[in-house]
């Protein structure tokens, strides 16, 4: 059985005044078929977790382990982590002028599968994925993320998720800034991804809203660089009612 196993992960972010520890011992195991929601207040280190899993150069893993099945991701570069089966849907997808969405998707698919996709079936697949996310086919010829609205960028991330079929997906606040229709469409994409294979999802969010559309198997409350409470979907309902205050107090007591 496939699993993404994070063990005692410590991460520094490089700042102008030197390294600063953001993640202070994260433990988390996501098995295939599971959706884990990570919820936390601003500044708790949720996005740092997402970026360090993917290997962003700004974040330095100082100790701990991230295993995807039996592959140690922390020893790999960004490309190799993606090839091992990890996908990060970014909170702020990057604009790459002059590189068309179609060219980008084909290049990524080729890199991940080791061979160029067959032209005829691939174009159909791309078009179908765009249809399902409510993006016009003309998107394929536009420069990657350039001039896209916030919602279009997020939909485009989920198009990639569905086409590239990674083993594990990390969604970094994919719900932020989406209106209710877009939220539903994006959530359906994630649900399709989960149903389409032996996949696992780490859903990082600030709000409980998306959990009305994607039912998590586990909810983790993230405060001050670590998981401070865990539970089932009822924990999210509890957060919705009471906010993060109780957990922030717990974190302070802990320290």
């Amino acid at each position: 059985m496939s699993a993404l196993t994070i063990t005692d992960l410590h991460v520094d972010v490089l700042t102008e005044t030197g390294p600063k520890e953001i993640l202070k011992g994260v433990n988390l195991t996501i098995r295939e078929g599971e959706v884990h929601a990570i919820m936390g207040p601003n500044g708790s280190g949720k996005s740092t977790l997402a970026y360090s899993l993917a290997g962003h150069p700004k974040y330095v893993i100082t100790s701990g382990s991230v295993l995807l099945d039996d592959v140690e991701l922390t020893k790999l570069d960004v490309t190799e982590r993606a090839k091992a089966g990890l996908f990060l849907a970014m909170q702020y997808p990057i604009e790459v002028p002059g590189v068309s969405v179609a060219n980008f998707l084909r290049t990524a698919k080729t890199a991940l599968s080791g061979e160029a996709p067959k032209v005829r079936t691939w174009v159909k697949e791309v078009n179908a994925a765009m249809d399902q996310l409510g993006l016009d086919h003309s998107f394929a010829s536009r420069s990657l993320n350039e001039g896209f609205s916030g919602g279009e960028k997020k939909r485009n991330e989920i198009v990639q998720l569905e086409l590239l079929q990674p083993k594990f997906a990390v969604l970094d606040e994919t719900d932020s800034g989406l209106d209710i229709d877009a939220l539903r469409i994006v959530s359906e994409g994630v649900n399709r991804y989960m149903a389409s294979g032996n996949h696992g999802t780490l859903l990082i969010t600030h709000y409980t809203r998306i959990l009305n559309y994607i039912t998590p198997d586990f909810v983790h409350v993230f405060v001050d660089g670590r998981v401070i409470a865990e539970g089932g979907p009822e924990l999210a309902a509890n957060l919705e009612a009471e906010g993060y205050d109780r957990f922030l107090k717990m974190a302070r007591v802990d320290v």
């Binding site: 970014m90 990057i94 790459v96 590189v99 980008f104 890199a111 590239l164």
Partner: peptide
Amino acid sequence: QLFYLMSRGISEAEARRLV
């Protein structure tokens, strides 16, 4: 830009070339 492209499995050399 390089990080974004590489996070989709594209090699660093290919990412540079694309950019």
